[in-house]
Structure formats: C-alpha cells, structure tokens
C-alpha cells in the first residue's frame, strides 16, 4: 500500500483509488512494458538501424549470437572469471567483515581499507591488474588472472561492509539464552548466528555478484581475446554497432533471469519471518 493511499483520506475522492481497484498489478506491469516497447520502436524509427534497431530486430540479432554458439563462448569466459572473483571476494570480504564485527581494533584497522576500496573505480583495478599481470597474459588454462584480481579487489569492500554489519548486530540476548540452555557451539552457529546474519549474507552475495560481473566485463576491455567486455569493445571499435545491440539483448535476458528467477524469490521466501526486508538500505552502502 502506498503512502498516497494512506493519505487519500485527505482528499474526498481520488481518481487513483478507483483506478487502482480497476487495474490489477499485472495489468500495470504490462502497461509499463508496453510503453517501453512503443517508445523504443518509435525512437528506432527515427534513427539508422545500426544506432538503434527496433525491439524485434534486436531479438533477432541476439538469437543470431545464441544460435551460432558465439554467445556461449564469451559468456562462459566472463562467468568463469566472475565465479572465481566472487569466491575470493566473499572469502576476503567475509573474513574482514567477521573480524570487524568481533573487535574494535580490527574495525578501526580495516575500516580505511574498506573505505578506500569503495572509492577506487573498477576501471582503475582493471587497468592496474592488466599491467601487473604482464598485459593480461598471465593465466591458468583459459582463466586470466587480471579480470579475477580486478573484480575481487573491487567487490570485497562491499562484502566486508555487509558481513560486518551483520556480525555487529547479532542479538546478544539470544546468545545468552543459548548459553543458559547449554546449547553446543555448533548448534549456536547454525541455528542462532547464521540465521541472524543471513539477510546480510544474502545482500553480500547479491552485491558481490552485481558489482562483480560489472567489473569483470570492464576488465575484459583489456583482455584481448575473449569475454563479453572484449566483444563489446571490439564491436564499438570496428563500428559493428548492431553486434553491440545483440550482446545487450542477450545480457538483458540473463539479468532478467537471475533477478526474477533467483534473487526475488529468495528475497520473498527466505526471510518471511521478517516483516520488513529493507533492501533499499543496502542500495546506499
């Protein structure tokens, strides 16, 4: 229920109230998508095809990438880097976050790293990692070090902040209760501590993946041979703008799949004991 609906008693009659009763949520959503579709088509009609293809042309272009297997090759390269970077960032950020939550010395000691880390752009880490790892050529099999290192270093402060806040806000009354009932440490960890910081772990994962893949793609600007970022830069350099659109469409599909197929359902279900999941707070972190 929106604030406006709450406030509606100030006005005798609000059109909105009536409209709301007529339109279901999904209808409003369809309108939103429809308006976007029409605007895009109208704009596309004004511009040359390569600058802005129509929605349907874009889907066709994207299908071309998927059908000939190109999409898979480059997306799997990107995801491979992302996987390792995410893992390292969770380990590094998680360790710092737990330490910062547990004692004030670690908190004061590591806070500068986290703050400085938050201010360094992903592009900077990508550029530095590229130069340090012999112009991006140092690799383990097909896995290049530079994008992994760049993404790890960009992401870890976001993970650390979330975990830190979680550990710091653990309910000490519950720990005392568990102590009074002589519950084992293992059980306390699994049943009290982890569920207590689960929302923060979830947002660390979410933030980690969201920022991680943005930086991985930026780092692939320099990668030279594979990855979505590389293909995008290449398409731009050789003026194959249509290909850039195709990649955008493929990516949009993946984003929608992950957001609506994975994150939103977890968000809704996993924390149904909480009356208020304030993910908007995390947006400001």
């Amino acid at each position: 229920m929106s604030i406006r609906t709450q406030l509606s008693r100030y006005n005798v009659q609000l059109l909105n109230g009536d409209v709301k009763s007529l339109l279901s949520d999904s209808f409003a959503r369809m309108i939103g998508i429809g308006v976007g579709f029409v605007l895009w088509s109208l704009l596309a009609a004004q511009f040359p095809r390569e600058l802005l293809p129509t929605p349907i042309e874009t889907v066709g272009l994207a299908w071309g990438l998927v059908a000939d297997g190109t999409a898979w090759i480059h997306i799997s390269t990107t995801f491979q880097s992302l996987f390792w970077a995410f893992l390292f960032a969770m380990l590094l950020g998680g360790t710092l976050g737990v330490l910062m939550g547990l004692n004030s010395y670690s908190q004061n000691f590591f806070t500068p790293y986290v703050n400085i880390g938050l201010s360094i752009p992903g592009l900077a880490w990508a550029a530095v990692a590229f130069l340090v790892f012999s112009y991006g050529s140092i690799a383990l099999g097909t896995l290049r070090f530079a994008p992994v290192v760049a993404a790890t270093l960009t992401v870890f402060p976001y993970v650390a902040i979330n975990i830190w806040k979680g550990v710091e806000n653990i309910d000490h009354d519950l720990l005392r209760m568990a102590n009074a009932f002589s519950i084992s440490r293992r059980r306390v960890l699994w049943r009290v501590v982890l569920p207590n910081i689960a929302p923060q772990i979830f947002s660390a994962v979410r933030f980690g993946l969201a920022i991680g893949w943005k930086v991985t793609i930026i780092a692939e600007l320099f990668a030279g041979s594979a990855g979505v970022g590389y293909k995008l830069e290449h398409a731009y350099q050789v003026y194959q703008y249509e290909e850039a659109w195709a990649w955008a469409a493929v990516f949009l599909f993946i984003i929608i799949l992950i957001e609506y197929g994975v994150f939103k359902p977890i968000e809704r279900r996993a924390f149904d004991w909480r009356s208020d999941v304030e993910l908007s707070d995390i947006g400001g972190a």
Binding site: K20, S26, A28, G32, I33
Partner: peptide
C-alpha cells in the same frame, strides 16, 4: 513511490 500504478509499471525498469 507515490503512485501504486507507476510503482507496478516502472519497478522492473529500476531493477534492470
């Protein structure tokens, strides 16, 4: 934030 209708219509755009 203010209108229910635009919340439903635009929130997907914000997510994306």
């Amino acid at each position: 934030g203010w209108w229910d209708f635009w919340e439903k219509a635009f929130q997907d755009y914000l997510t994306i």
